[in-house]
Nucleic acid binder design. Structure first.
Lengths: 104, 104
DNA sequence: TAAATATATGAATACATGGTCATATATTTA
DNA sequence: TAAATATATGACCATGTATTCATATATTTA
């Protein structure tokens, strides 16, 4: 058995927990799609997302609330519409990971 | 409302489902840690992982089985030991995403 | 101000997941 | 071959998650 005494996880505990928490949010087909769409259009209303994704309004709303709770997206209301946008566009790097790793 | 007719998800459905499935597996503090450790050491036995991670043997085994089922890691037995290693090292790009995006 | 439009919320349910415990299997060593 | 070591498995339970349905809220328009 190799010596392992110098080996340690290079990510601190709090960061690990936060990362897992946010990744869990990303780990859903609809929510990955939303990230992809918001990379293309900067901001989209719920109706626009619904038109593209073709899922029930309330289900989409639940997904969006989930993503906002975790800081992945943010909102701005304009009249009847609520625009959703990525809090940090660099989260789209996850999609590059998906496309660049055979495991996915 | 902006025209959305040219907008679509740029990832095909099967790929989205597979990506979500694998991401769900990555989205856990212990499993992210395992990926980080296997980037540093190429391969590690269950005992070595246990020594670093300090979690119960059977819990670790469940995590590893989970990761293997999803194709994230693979194994090779050598005597009493089973070595685990990353199926595709480029999955560690996920950790770079975590470190490079404020949301995480 | 009533109706229409856009979005959010909450309850309920079914299913998945994480962790623990007891036990099983595989391999080596005494 | 019995004991020791390394790892895996299965049952169980508590908690979390996804989806649906009904309904609520906010804003605009007729």
């Amino acid at each position: 058995m190799t010596n392992v005494s110098s080996l340690e996880v290079r990510i601190e505990k709090k960061k690990l927990e936060r990362a897992a928490y946010v990744l869990k949010c990303v780990a859903h087909p609809v929510r990955i799609s939303i990230i992809d769409l918001l990379e293309q259009r900067t901001r989209l209303t719920v109706s626009e997302l619904q038109e593209v994704l073709k899922i029930e309004q309330s289900l989409l709303s639940h997904h969006l609330t989930n993503m906002r709770d975790k800081g992945v997206v943010n909102t701005q209301r304009e009249g009847k519409n609520v625009y959703y946008f990525l809090t940090d566009v660099s989260i789209t790097n996850i999609i590059d990971c998906i496309n660049g790793c055979k495991v996915f």
